[in-house]
Amino acid sequence: MVERRFLIIGAFLLLAIGLFLLWNLRAPYGFILSLRVEKLVALVLVGAATGAATLIFQTVAANRLLTPGIVGFDALFVFMQTALVMTLGGVGFSALPGTAKFLAETACLMVAALTLFGILFRKGAQDVVRMILTGVILGVLLRGLAGFAQRLLEPSEFAVVQQASIANFNVVDETQFGIAAVALGLALVAAWRMAPALDVAALGRDKARTLGLSHDRIVFGALAVVAVLVSVSTALVGPVTFLGLLAASLAHAALADHRHRVLIPAAALIGAAILVAGQAVFERMLGLQSALAIVVEFAGGILFLALVFWRRAS
């Protein structure tokens, strides 16, 4: 049963990949295909990383409404872009070496994520209200600081910040692919290895500890994996807050299983399939009239509200 559903998800991803690569393919085939493959790799990497990260985060937080973005990841990324443009200027920002900027941003986001996760999970994942409030306040603070700084920018510099702050798969630097792929691949392998322990952790801290699981160590390991997945994918293309919520919710609904050995790959495949299918439709049908990230955020936001109201009703 689970295997069949898994195959359906895999088939959907393959169909989306086929659509993305072959739809409206014109000569010179080799050149266009190579461009599309580069973009495809970015879409699959980011989608898989975001889906897997959210699913793991929800298990650790014992809450299926949360995403790693609760700590204000998107706000931190926008704040970093604004700070860079403000200090270096629009031209200086654009002239930054891509790979160095990517690595520095990844490192900053990881340090911030581990610090924030560490603070939020200091007393375990039981105080969800405190966690959400802290995340919201941090997000508001960072957005406020970024907004204030943006008002001080020249209009041309403001446009540079705007462009850098929305997830964009059209301008991915292919030189960063290798680093991102290795980092995300290692993090996904680590997630796969800790999947059985996450099954036990999902029973709750006390139950897991009485079963001999070093719960706090597993939680820290899982958060480190989440930090790598989210930081690398955010630094690669920008923040996609609600994609993970979409992917994790669909994985839970489609597989109806508690095992992380199937849930994590399913969320990764669904996350990748959403981005690839979405980008295919955007590029081929809508002629890039908007940004894919905006539509994903819109759909994810609606799902978030639906989950909140559905839970309240039940």
Partner: peptide
């Protein structure tokens, strides 16, 4: 924790 889990 593992030793405890084998005991109780």
């Amino acid at each position: 924790e593992r030793d405890r889990a084998m005991l109780l």
